[in-house]
């Protein structure tokens, strides 16, 4: 292959990073956060196994895990994918469309939940007969 010049669209070049300190720091943060998530996941497992599983406690732990996962996503995108080094305008052109996820998640999770409630209460149009699992068994199963 012959050598060729790419017409540079870059006006201002970044100096190469002097060392890999930032990369390793991100790696340790990601590892520690993952271990924290595991600890919370195992706590949820033990709460479920216990005599009186507290739904509120489980929901709280799951919320904390979701926030930790978003933090991991931030470090991967900003340090590993060098998003933090790009210009502000370019960053916004990536991040702003992703904000649609906020509505996307709220709307569809609410929809699933509303469907279950409507079906279980036999309200409205849904006249579905519940499957033949005894009610006592249903209560013992984990609903989420």
């Amino acid at each position: 292959m012959s050598s060729f010049e790419v017409p540079s669209q870059i006006t201002i070049h970044h100096e190469p990073a002097p060392n890999t300190k930032r990369i390793w720091r991100a790696f340790w943060i990601l590892s520690v956060v993952t271990l924290g998530e595991l600890a919370l996941g195992l706590s949820i497992y033990n709460i479920h196994k216990g005599p009186n599983p507290s739904e509120m406690m489980v929901l709280f732990f799951k919320g904390v895990i979701c926030i930790l996962t978003l933090a991991k996503g931030y470090y991967i995108a900003w340090v590993f994918m060098h998003m933090g080094d790009e210009s502000k305008l370019f960053r916004r052109s990536i991040v702003v469309p992703l904000l649609l996820f906020i509505w996307f998640i709220i709307a569809f999770l609410h929809d699933g939940n509303a469907y279950r409630e409507a079906r279980d209460s036999n309200a409205g149009e849904f006249k579905v007969i519940k499957n033949d699992v005894p009610a006592a068994v249903l209560e013992r199963g984990q609903k989420d």
Partner: peptide, 13 residues
């Protein structure tokens, strides 16, 4: 998200 929606729409998971 469709997985989450189905999971929340089920009585048991």
């Amino acid at each position: 998200i469709s997985y989450g929606s189905t999971r929340l729409g089920s009585d048991y998971w």
